[in-house]
Amino acid sequence: MRGLKSIMANSPVLLIIAAFAAVPLFVANMYYLQVLVFIGIYAILALSLNLLNGYVGMLSIGHAAFYAIGAYASAKLTIDLQLPWVLALAGAGAIAGGFGYLIAKPTLRLSGIYMTLVTLGFNMILFLVLQNWMGFTNGPLGIMDIPPPSIFGFALGSRLQYYYLILTLVLLTVFSMHRLMDCRFGRALTAIRENELAAEATGVDTTRYKTQAFVLSASYAGIAGSFYAHFVKYISPDSFTINESFILLAMLAFGGQGNLIGPMVGAAALILIPEIFRPLLEYRMFVYGGILIVMMLVRRQGLFGSRSYRLRLTRFDPSPVRVYQRGDKFLPEG
């Protein structure tokens, strides 16, 4: 009974999932499916960046670095070590997270703009490493012939299968992030964003939480990178420039941050706009830029830029709120 109730309470979410699952029935065009897959990849990336920029309020402007690490790690693991893709995916997440830790540990002591510059620098350095380390990354030529994802021996081939795989990954990302943000962890991150000094003074270990958030964010980006590598089957440093990081930031700016809906909307919008205006040829970037500018003028917080857009997937305490009287029992814990 309770199960049914919670299913009913989540029905809008379930409907949306069902709609996305049914999309291929109506969209047979391979090109459209490809665009949808890219929206999925960027949705995960934007959500991962949102963890830092939206929830903790740390501005990271070099997030493509972790995307790149995930992509290269996954390619290397499957080609050189012959690992199955599922393990490579986990490995890409772990390695990107590891790099995230290495960056976060020394720099989180820095405040605000200094940390931001470190992320920018890391992105630039990583790009140069990928570009010049011929022996390992094959430099600007990139890595070719990356095997398609195989799940327990079943190798993916068609666009349709990729679509369902990325849909699953996006759903897992949303679901896991929702669980993280819906309890102690998410509350602490938001408190740090709202007022770091007060959070620290109330007993929140801000450095620890920020490190955790950074590592998590990096591993989500790494997972997106892994999918990208095996989807496109060819990666080169050009896909992971600073420009890529800025596109992610624009997605957050457009869709809104600090919730789980905004970044996905932003990703979808900023992937779709250039595609829709393809007939305008090179002028389409004018439209792209113009829409962003108008957006910033009209609605600065982004389309869904507030905490009130919440996915309520779970509720802890469905019981009605009790009203307490002033004399009620209240003793400090020993």
Binding site: E194, A199, T202, G203
Partner: peptide, 20 residues
Amino acid sequence: RVFGQMSVLENVMVGRDFRG
């Protein structure tokens, strides 16, 4: 210094973060 965007209840719950 309250956490402006968080609800009243969430604000107070952060106060118990370290007991979690």
